[in-house]
Design a binder for these strands. Structure first.
Lengths: 365, 365
DNA sequence: GGACGATCCTACAACGTTGTAGAACGCTGT
DNA sequence: ACAGCGTTCTACAACGTTGTAGGATCGTCC
């Protein structure tokens, strides 16, 4: 249509620029910028001419140029272990939706839960492209808190690092684990196995959830039996199935299983199915996370719903607040609500049972 | 540390620029650029001085500036229905990994399989931020092929649009469906139900997979019985479970079920479990996609593995080729390999069975 | 009637990078 | 001695946008 490259340099796909719009509308380029950015003091007639020109030429603002000029990109990073883990896929989904509502783009980065890669995303070139980072490490520990001291805002998710220089959104793992264990105690189970423990680890979801489990036992006057606790390094179905098999092979008496997340619990269900153990008749099973699968397993899985939407929303809001206002402010810690979702795997009889919900508790620090 | 903003304008977090590096190394800014970009004709001494300065000042190239200057971003878009659908989460995982190996960043966009949003991503502002798009629509149809006529490269995934102005990576749905149906016929099943059909739809995975199913029946001399085909609009577990329940309630004789994807098949498994139907004893079940869950269901699910890695790799390569070389070239269509993964849900007896694989076929157009 | 403030608009420079053109230098071959 | 070529480096402009400063115009208030 117009063509006519102005000089000898290479770039640009010949796109329409503000200059073209300005020429057509008979105004300065800055006025076009003002119209585009909603600057109020523009005469209606001028605005109309500019808008007509934008429309006619099909002008779109060049985001790279705006990014360069403003030193902002409108993109936030989301670093997580793996999208193929359903919990994180669902979390990413929620974060993207929450960000979208606020006009922000999310760039996902997978760390594979590998320590080296988790540290690397903090200093990666990609950080140039994002205004801030929502960071969900699995391999780091409290000693790595200092690594979060980076020149851009970070919101931390999960239970690996506390007290780092970042806002932190988490759930009340101890309370939730305690509540779900109480649920098992409430239906008369006393020999409650745990699948997915991390021996000797002081922090992390495993330690916290086991602590809640022990608190519930203690409160109910049930003795803690280490023989009921099975390790599983990675929280996958396969490791859950293996851990369950080890427990069964060990011959300890068991009438319930607490999978420290849903993947482990679903793996445990699978192992129990293999051995023709009736769930929940002989052994009741609970999980943690309320991934979509939990509602479609056989039997459907009782689990803890961790308020994923709330976590996503809160994380985005905290991050955007830091990005927009870089003044120093004490770091916040937000603890999301949870709910116990009761399903067949802890039902009185093995039939379908209506889903009930027990409200969680929320604390703001 | 150094501070000293040079003028009155606002932006920039006071980052180190090429200019700072150039000053310290005593060279021109362009020489720094040349070093950074691996330009060969630089004396070793000069290169060393520049590298020392980069190291000492902690210089990182500003990606926004580079993007503006080059008219490229190094980002590709990936538009898909939802990350919370395991197939697409796993696909995204594969695409991100493939892109990473080629030094490219992936920006995920969710369309929710909503027609309006699927069309919108093609013209969204975000397209400014990406050099090209990997596009996996679910709601569009062949009549929308023209919508792909956009001023940036597109690689199309899936079975909704053919012959549009874009490279296309797909799998051989008909062949694969035929093969998995033949597998059911091979273990003696004759009353094979289908879960997930889309009545009256000419294109799309549903239609193609049903076609493969019918071809297999015909080749085996088994009559096609419409009463065995159950609809399910959305391919979720819930809809699969409902469709399976309808089939069972209808009282038709059934000895196998072909879920048109794994989610449907897992839903069907769930419904069969509810009704205490023995799988595979009374009814064998197969799915399609080989999502991770398929290997951990009870019983584990026989399914079609669609060569996800290969699809991801091919899509990225085709896209990058178009981005790097914008000369006109006929659009390619690549058909990925598939494999039948045999698991318990079609085993001779209901016990665990080693996983076997039947090689697929690959065609290049 | 003139000072003042609000409104509307413009010129200019700058964000940090890279493409182009070309200068300076040294080497080779005649 | 000098043309010719390759190597090494530099100056400059440009990518498209927005912040700042300020000019022009108009109405209002004492």
């Amino acid at each position: 249509m117009n063509g006519a490259r102005k000089n000898g340099t290479t770039p640009g796909r010949g796109a329409v620029t503000m200059n073209d719009v300005a020429t057509r509308a008979g105004v300065s380029i800055k006025t076009v910028s003002n119209v585009v950015n909603g600057y109020p003091h523009i005469r209606p007639g001028t605005r109309a001419r500019v808008e007509e020109a934008i429309e006619a030429l099909g002008y779109r603002v060049n985001i790279s140029a705006r990014n360069l000029r403003q030193g902002r990109t409108g993109i936030v990073g989301l670093a997580l272990p793996e999208l193929s883990l359903p919990y994180f896929a669902e979390l990413a989904d929620s974060v993207i939706r929450a960000a979208e509502q606020r006009g922000v783009i999310v760039l996902i980065e997978q760390t594979g839960a590998v320590r080296e890669r988790e540290l690397e995303v903090l200093t990666s070139e990609r950080r140039q492209l994002t205004d801030g980072l929502i960071y969900s490490p699995l391999a780091l520990g409290p000693e790595d808190g200092a690594a979060l001291d980076v020149p851009y805002p970070v919101v931390l998710l999960g239970e690996r690092i506390f007290g780092g220089p970042a806002d932190h959104v988490t759930m009340n793992n101890v309370e939730a684990a305690r509540a779900v264990t109480e649920h098992l105690l409430g239906i008369g189970r006393r020999r409650i196995a745990v699948v997915g423990a991390h021996e000797g680890e002081a922090v992390g979801s495993a330690a916290l959830r086991v602590r809640g489990y022990r608190e519930a036992l203690e409160a109910a006057g049930v003795a803690y039996d280490p023989a009921l606790v099975a390790e599983a390094g990675l929280w996958h179905r396969s490791t859950g199935a293996e851990a369950m098999a080890r427990l069964l092979d060990a011959g300890v008496e068991i009438d319930a299983v607490f999978g420290l997340n849903d993947a482990l619990a679903l793996g445990a269900l699978h192992a129990l199915h293999d051995r023709r153990v009736d769930v929940p008749g002989e052994i009741a099973v609970v999980g943690f996370d309320d991934i979509e699968d939990a509602a479609y397993a056989s039997p459907t899985l009782t689990t803890v719903s961790p308020g994923r939407e709330q976590i996503a929303r809160t994380a985005i809001d905290l991050l955007l607040a830091r990005i927009q206002d870089s003044s120093e402010r004490p770091y916040e810690r937000v603890i999301a609500d949870f709910e116990i979702v009761e399903r067949e795997s802890t039902a009185g009889q093995s039939a379908s049972v209506p889903v009930a919900a027990v409200p969680g508790r929320s604390i703001l620090a």
